[in-house]
Structure formats: C-alpha cells, structure tokens
Simulated scan of single mutants.
Amino acid sequence: MTDEPVGGVRVCRVFLVDDHAVFRSGVRAELAGQAGIEVVGEAGSVAEAVAGIGRVRPDVVLLDVHMPDGGGVAVLRSVLGTDPSGAPATSGAPATSGTSDASGTSEAPVSTFLALSVSDAAEDVIAVIRGGARGYVTKTISGGELADAVRRVADGDAVFSPRLAGFVLDAFARAAPGPEERGEPVHDPEVDSLTPREKEVLRLLARGYTYKEIAEKLFISVKTVETHASNVLRKTQQSNRHALTRWAQSRHLD
C-alpha cells in the first residue's frame, strides 16, 4: 500500500474487474465503508481491465475469474506476462503497471491480484494462482472479510476462502518433481543399510538365481551367500525369499 496514512490508517487503492456492473456497484458500496480501502477504478472486460490497471496502478486488483473475453487468467497474462501454468508468456509484450528507470530496467508490477468469484472449482483456483494471483475468495464473502482479505494480500499474505487453499497445495504437491525426476538419489533407509555385496546378492536372488548359482557368479562360497541372504532378510524385515523378491522389485533393485 503506497499512499500516505490518513488518520493513522494507510489507504489501499483497489481496482474492480467484473463483467457485471451491478455486482461491481455492490462491491464498491461494501468497500466504501471499510477503513483504509479506496476503490480507484473498475472495468467490465479484459481490455478495459488491462488499460485501467496500467493507468491507475492500484495496490490490489479484485479480479473476476469468468468473463466472456477470457476472464481473470487473460488479465493476469496481459498484466503480469504469464501463461496459465505460471511460466513467462511466450508471445506479446506484457502490459505491466511498472515503469522504466533511466537505465531502461523495468520495475516489477505494483498491483497484487485477488480473485473474487462465484466459482469454487479447483481448476479455476489453480489456474489463477498459477497465473499470478495472490489469493482467491468466493462471492459469499462479507464486506468486512473482503476488506480484510484486500489488506492482507496488499501486505504480502496469501488469502483463500475455506478449503480452497487445499486445492492449491494439492496441485503444486503433484506438480513438484520428486528426487528421481530431479536426477537426485532416492534415499531408502533399508536399502541404504545394505552393503554393496548384500545388494549384489539381493539382485541375483530377486532374479531367481539359486544360492549355488549366486556363489559361482560372485566367486564366493555358498555359505557366504547364505550369510549375506540372511543379513538382507533381517535388514529389510522380510520373512522369506518370495517376499524379498517383491520388496526388491518394488524398489527397482531386481
């Protein structure tokens, strides 16, 4: 929030984006009575929103998700230069609300986006958050709660209506690459407890070799193979060779 405090309260400048004029009027009326909130503009389409945000440079944009000409994601893409996956846009110049200094370096966009929608569908929540919105609240929210959400996102918090945050956490948890995808070693305490020789014996056991065949392949005695096999069973907590084979296959050690 960039305005100077008025009567001890710092003013947060808000821009409304929704294709229903009656709804915009209602939100404006609700926020008008809230301390520290000033509605500085509104738009009913993506094009109007992009132009208005660039001109007014509000602190917070209250953004409708579904509009006939592309909706909230289209606004986010135009203003922040992102596509729905959150990656930089590959075409078109982002219409950011930032400015350039004498060196030609662009400042980061000054506006923060808070989605305000009738929809509580997971795909809508995920799309706008990946697009760059800082939060998502539904239109069942009260005026006081909305004002509080606006102040919080302006201060850098992420704000969601109840249960919606779970959609985002689940989506990003699924999308996050595991150690295998990142090319990092996967640590399994039971596997790590095995010596290199015990792992060799384990792999051959899982492939169906007999103790005698393993001894011949590794140039060790059958008694030594039996000892290694016993250690492997104990360390992996498996009861027999068949269970050990399934265990090894589940860890791609066969």
Score class of each variant (00 low, 15 high):
Gly72Arg: 03
Ala87Asn: 08
Val75Pro: 13
Ile129Gly: 02
Ser117Asn: 13
Gly70His: 05
Gly98Glu: 10
Thr99Gln: 11
Val110Lys: 08
Gly131Thr: 00
Ala87Asp: 03
Val73Ser: 06
Pro84Lys: 03
Asp83Leu: 09
Ala133Thr: 05
Gly70Leu: 01
Gly98Met: 09
Gly131Gln: 02
Ala115Trp: 04
Ala87Trp: 03
Thr96Lys: 10
Val75Ile: 01
Arg134Leu: 11
Asp120Tyr: 14
Val75Tyr: 07
Asp83Ser: 03
Pro94Ala: 01
Ala122Val: 11
Thr90Phe: 01
Ala108Met: 12
Arg134Asp: 10
Ala122Met: 02
Ser85Cys: 12
His66Gly: 08
Ala74His: 05
Ser97Met: 09
Leu116Phe: 12
Arg77Thr: 00
Leu76Ile: 06
Ala102Ile: 12
Thr96Val: 07
Thr105Asn: 09
Thr105Glu: 11
Thr112Ser: 01
Pro94Phe: 04
Ala87His: 05
Val128His: 08
Ala74Val: 02
Val118Ser: 14
Phe113Ser: 02
Ala102Trp: 13
Ser103Arg: 07
Ser103Cys: 12
Val73Thr: 08
Thr105Ser: 05
Ser85Asn: 14
Ala89Met: 08
Asp69Val: 15
Gly104Ser: 06
Val118Glu: 14
Leu76Cys: 04
Ser97Leu: 04
Ala133Gly: 10
Pro109Cys: 03
Ser100Ala: 13
Gly72Leu: 04
Ser103Pro: 01
Ser117Cys: 14
Met67Ser: 08
Thr99Tyr: 12
Ser119Pro: 03
